[in-house]
Simulated assay, not measured.
Amino acid sequence: MRPVSPVPVLSPRPRLSDFFQGVGLLGRAFGLVFRSRRLLLLSTVCAAITAIALVALGVLLYRYAPGVLGSVWTQPESWYGRAGWYTVLILSSLVAWVVGANVVPPLLLTPLQDPLSEATEAECGEADASMSPASFLRGMTTGLLHTLARMALLFLGLLLLLPLNLVPGLGSIAFTVLASLWTMLWMAGEHLAAPMTRHLYPFSQVRRMLRERRALCMGFGAGVYLLLWVPILNTFFLPVAIIGGTLLYRGLRATGDLSAPPDALPTPGKLSRGPDGAK
């Protein structure tokens, strides 16, 4: 009996219930990790590095976040003033921790992201082509540059929301909510873009998927975001997000939302030949 394909069966038309299917991609990704020895090995290495990075981020924020906030807002003496100060400290630290978790581990794990995505596609029935050292380095460099560009987009969005903290009362709460929603959407785009970049799709296609299948993508991003807050499991957030993003990409291919990847199309100078070798 042939094993069930891990590729999700998506609805042909966007609908609000796609949000829950997007969240469910994380369950598919976890299941696939334990079905594949290669994915389990790569994910374990990623989890170990991610755990060290997350603990280090927490320690740095605990030691330095109060001083950074105190340099721009002296702690008030009144009890209600201190309550507001600590509220801003906690909320801003939470956002900073999530942002740091989406910046530091991906940079550290850049060499492993493409192998994880390729191994996932192999489990989905895609031919697992071997890579030469030159093409591996080229892919790693391209992936790093694209990751840095997408991170700049994340910081730009957060920078535009930052002035909300200056609004007394609900400003910091509004910043935390909107920054979290922006980060969820960015997470979906980041991990969907990884396999699409490897197949040479332009980023405009990633933006199109985020726009046309927003409920599905938002659900996936929300699932990854929530995974960050689950102790122990959060060390697996990056490999699971990469695997889930690759499954999302394969699902969008299967529904016809995405056409054949550019790297599968024949190049202009590459014409088909007949049986006798003639063009």
Rank of each mutant, 00 (worst) to 15 (best):
L32D: 05
S135Y: 13
R213Q: 09
R198K: 11
L216C: 06
E126P: 02
R2W: 07
R82A: 15
A56W: 10
A51H: 08
A48N: 09
G274V: 00
F236N: 03
T255M: 05
I49P: 00
L228N: 12
P12T: 10
L16E: 14
A215P: 08
H146V: 08
V33I: 15
M184H: 02
L185N: 02
P262M: 13
A83H: 02
W97V: 01
H199C: 03
L94P: 00
A134K: 04
R15V: 07
G256T: 04
K270H: 11
V206R: 04
L54Q: 05
P195C: 11
L159F: 12
V177G: 04
V98C: 06
H191F: 15
A29F: 07
E77G: 15
A53Y: 05
V45M: 08
D276T: 01
G171Y: 04
A193T: 01
I52E: 12
A48I: 15
G67H: 15
Q113Y: 01
R38V: 11
R82S: 15
V230M: 10
R207E: 08
P111L: 10
A194F: 08
L116Q: 04
L158P: 00
L238H: 11
Y249T: 08
L159S: 14
A264E: 12
W229K: 03
L42P: 00
E190T: 01
G67C: 14
L61F: 09
L228H: 10
T120N: 05
R2K: 06
R35F: 06
P239M: 06
L227V: 07
F237G: 00
T176R: 00
I243K: 01
G84L: 09
L265H: 04
L54S: 01
M187W: 02
